[in-house]
Structures are given as structure tokens and as C-alpha cells.
Amino acid sequence: VVLALVTSVDLALVSLASESATIGVLVALTLLFAGAGTRPGSGPFAAPASLVHAAALACAIGASAGRPPHHTALLVVVVSAVAALLAARSSGSPVTVPVEGAGAAAGLLSLALAATDLPMLALVLSVGGVVMAGTAIRPDRRAAGHVAVVLFVLAAWVRLAAWDVTTPEAYALPVTVPALVVGHLSRRRDPALSSWTAYGAGLGLALVPSLLAAWGDPHWFRPLLLGTAALAVTLVGARSRLQAPLVLGGSVLALVALHELAPYVAQVVGVLPRWAPPALAGAVLLAMGATYEQRLRDARRVREVFARFH
């Protein structure tokens, strides 16, 4: 088997001297190893070798047709899809993992070929997401569903970049929605799950990019929408007794309010006499000192209530 694999690589390299010889040799090697892959003994070696030669054949066909590399990527990603189908048929056998490894390598090669063209890269990522979603149907490959979600999100981001979209919310939404859905389903299965684990990542991705954009945005529309969304998240967190929505929503709401009120506060401070701000600060400190014990009890009570949140 080792001699056959080494000889096939040497034969493929020698055939590169002629275009017709390259395609003919790669077709022969693909079919030869595909036939040998049906045998139990040589299957774990021959089946992935057939897929590797098929990927090389796809590249050779694309080059022979004069197509650019990002078009050839579509042919290579077909090899990855075929590998997923073969792995599903041979699930549980020694052939499964080597075939999946060859399919993953073909998928990475297709991404590298499509990297120079954003629309084609988005298409290849989408096809890869479909392949991984189909793989996740198998009971022993449920984790592939996470890879499928990542590929779909990357495909959406690349497509938005190809359309010259610069709004951060457009990039955050494809991540936020799946993250919150997964968190909600996880809490339904395990009610004791922390809200930070379930919703922290999704809410952070939804609110933080918009907050950073709002602080540099001279218009009022984005801060208004962000403040409304943060208020809604805060109210949901308070009503549902969840720490993550309450803290994240309240923090973003406070920062948005501070950003919007800062110019007016600066104008008021500029109009007041110079002695007014120190006098006001002193009055506040005196009031806090006079009611120190009460404020301390209130802080303990708030901490106890917050600790009871999930």
C-alpha cells in the first residue's frame, strides 16, 4: 500500500509535463484508488488517496479550461461534499476518519482558491456550511453543527464585505441570533445554567459593536435605537431575574445616556461659576457621609437580591 501511494504521487508529478497526460493519469489514479478503497484492508489508505487525486484532478481541469482559481474552487468543494457522503455511508468503519480528513483538506483547499474573490468565497463557505450541516445529522457527528454555524456566519460576513457594507449591526446580527437561540435552548435543557453562559456572548456581540459605533456617530438615530434595545434587554433581565441581560443592558444604556448627555452637561458646567462644582461635590459627600450606614445597608440588600439572579 505504501509503495502504491508513493508511486502514485511520483506518477502524478511526472505527468505534469503534458496537460492531457496530467488529466488522464489523475483520472486513472482516482478510479484505481476508489476501487481499492472498497477493500477492508486497504480502504483506510486508498479511499482518502482517491479523494486527494480527485481534488488534484479538479484543479487540473480548471487550469486546462483556463478558468481562474476561484472558479476552480467550486470543483474542489464538490470533492469535499463527496467525502462527506462517503463518510456517512461508512460511518463507524476504519475508513470514516481518513475520508473525513481528506474531505476537510479539500475544503480548505477550495477556500484558499476562492480567497481572491469575495462573492465566490461566500458561496464556497455556504456550500461548506451545507456539507457540515448534513454531517451533523449523524448521531456521532453532532459537533459538526457548530462548524456549520461558523461557516454560515463567515459566508454572511464575506457577502456583506463584498457589498461594501460597513454597518457593524449587519455583521453582528448573523452571530447574535444563533447565539441567543442556542443559549435559550441550552437553558431549557438545563434551567440551572448561568445566564452569562447562555446569553452573555450573544448579547455582548449584539450590543458592544453598536456601542463603539454610537460613541463615534454624530447622528442621533443609532444611539436612539441602541438605547431602546438596551432598555428592553434590561427590563427583560430584571423581569426574568437574569444577571447577564440586566448587567449588559443596563451598562450599555448608562453609557449611551452618558454619551448623549455629556455635551449638555459640559455646557451647564461652563455656565456655572468656578466654585459651584466643588461646592456641589462637597454637598454630595456630606450627604453620603450623613447617610453612610443606610447606604451601606442598601448596598448589601442590592447585592443579596442580585446574587439570587441566575
Rank of each mutant, 00 (worst) to 15 (best):
L226N: 07
Q243M: 14
L255N: 03
A254H: 01
L224S: 13
S251E: 09
A244P: 02
A238I: 10
A229K: 06
H219I: 03
R241Y: 08
L224N: 09
L255Y: 05
P245C: 08
T228S: 13
T234L: 13
S240Q: 13
F221A: 15
F221T: 15
L246M: 13
V233T: 12
P223L: 02
G249D: 02
L248W: 03
G237F: 00
P245A: 03
G216T: 11
V247S: 04
A229Q: 09
T228E: 14
L255W: 04
L255V: 09
A230Q: 03
P223T: 05
L246W: 04
L225T: 15
V233A: 10
L226T: 10
G227T: 08
D217F: 08
R239G: 01
P218D: 10
V252T: 07
L224A: 15
P223K: 06
A254V: 04
A232G: 14
G250H: 03
L231I: 02
L226W: 10
A232F: 11
L255G: 02
G250P: 03
A254L: 13
L255E: 07
T228V: 14
R241F: 09
V252M: 03
W220M: 13
G227C: 11
A257D: 10
S251V: 08
L253R: 01
V247I: 15
P218W: 12
L255F: 10
F221W: 15
L235G: 00
V256C: 07
A244G: 08
A254G: 05
P245G: 07
